[in-house]
Design a protein around this nucleic acid. Structure first.
Lengths: 201, 201
DNA sequence: TGTACATCAGTGAACGCGCGTTCACTGATGTAC
DNA sequence: TGTACATCAGTGAACGCGCGTTCACTGATGTAC
């Protein structure tokens, strides 16, 4: 028998929840930009003007935070992509998705961009637990994107979405790895044309 | 005025060179499988039954080794891909490249696979010097693959090769990140069909 | 041929640093009465 | 309303560990003579 009662709280009820979310947001940015190994818990907490010790009031481990940061990152990109698709003229949704994903802005903003392009190779080296979380988050992302794709069944639309977004993630990754600005622009522009043609725009 | 004379050597002349190459090969494998941050110099040297102290007789830093490991990895994949294309029936070269790159074997062998799929996101976080080395190695790789692609000029063939290989790298990365074996097989199979169609096979 | 010397790939202890995690403590606020 | 007490988000020192890099040393072999 478990008795649930409201305990005494010295902070406003949702204060802890908000701090937790701010940590996740800061983590998503830093993990994607610098990689999880190069970002220390103390960096993240300093971003929020807190000290590192308090971290463990919110998370059991850095690994748990990593999982939530990826979920957050995927939600954020899918928000951005869905918004772009909704603003597109009828029939132009797919083109809007591609142009947004392979835009110079997305390329230049790894921190707030797609976690697949920034972190999927690192997720692949992670224990099964984290990979399952990742897989679930990707599925939710694809379910959300599927409606903009042609295909008889939801399953087919999701498969097309997966192929498009994983392919573009690879191309975006390469654009970021290259040093020459001209090459970068060209890779992105070629990619936009290639994928638009490939999904039959 | 520099006098070049053969110094006294206590090891056979090419011994040092061979050790250096063995370090690079071990590094490519471990960097790609575990990531550069999770592989210690001492791990690599232990792979060759040596101790970590000797490492600095061969390389100035871990960063220098990272650059060479990526060059080595790209040469190795392009060898493998070129071999597959050469064995293909006439006209089937592109299909052979795609089937080899997106094969379950390549997916399951990150250590000896393509460094773009395994490490490009990490390269993107690296200082400009390493990124230049990467870019040069990728260009050599594309020049070598270009001959299997349609296109009026070498430049055009290389651009198609880049789009294909970066796209497939993204798809391969996702297949590796996912936990479910069935999903993994499906991603690879869908990818093979998608890219074969996209390059007009 | 034999002997003394020089070379340098490799050894392993040590240094310094960063960082994940723990823990005793603080102090602002809510609750009980 | 006022006072004593309980709670717990946050603090910051400390611990333990891993790892990149350095360095004095070793010892097998080549060269000089």
């Amino acid at each position: 028998m478990v008795i649930i009662s409201a305990p005494a709280m010295r902070y406003p009820a949702q204060h802890k929840q908000e701090t937790r979310e701010r940590i996740v947001r800061a983590a998503a940015r830093r993990f994607q930009r610098q990689g999880p190994e190069r970002t220390a818990i103390s960096d993240l907490m300093r971003d929020l003007r807190l000290t590192h010790g308090g971290f463990y009031r919110h998370f059991d481990s850095k690994e748990e935070l990593f999982e939530e940061a990826i979920e957050h990152g995927l939600r954020r990109v899918s928000d951005r992509l869905a918004a772009a698709a909704e603003q597109a003229p009828p029939g132009g949704e797919l083109k809007a998705l591609i142009d947004t994903y392979l835009s110079p802005e997305h390329c230049g903003d790894t921190a707030n961009g797609c976690p697949v392009a920034a972190l999927a190779a690192e997720v692949a080296r992670t224990p099964a637990g984290s990979r399952r979380v990742f897989q679930r988050a990707v599925r939710a992302y694809l379910r959300r994107m599927a409606r903009y794709f042609p295909g008889a069944t939801a399953r087919e639309r999701e498969r097309r979405a997966l192929l498009l977004f994983t392919g573009m993630a690879g191309t975006l990754m390469m654009a970021r790895a290259v040093t020459d600005q001209g090459d970068r622009r060209r890779i992105l522009a070629d990619g936009r044309a290639f994928y638009l043609n490939a999904v039959g725009g």
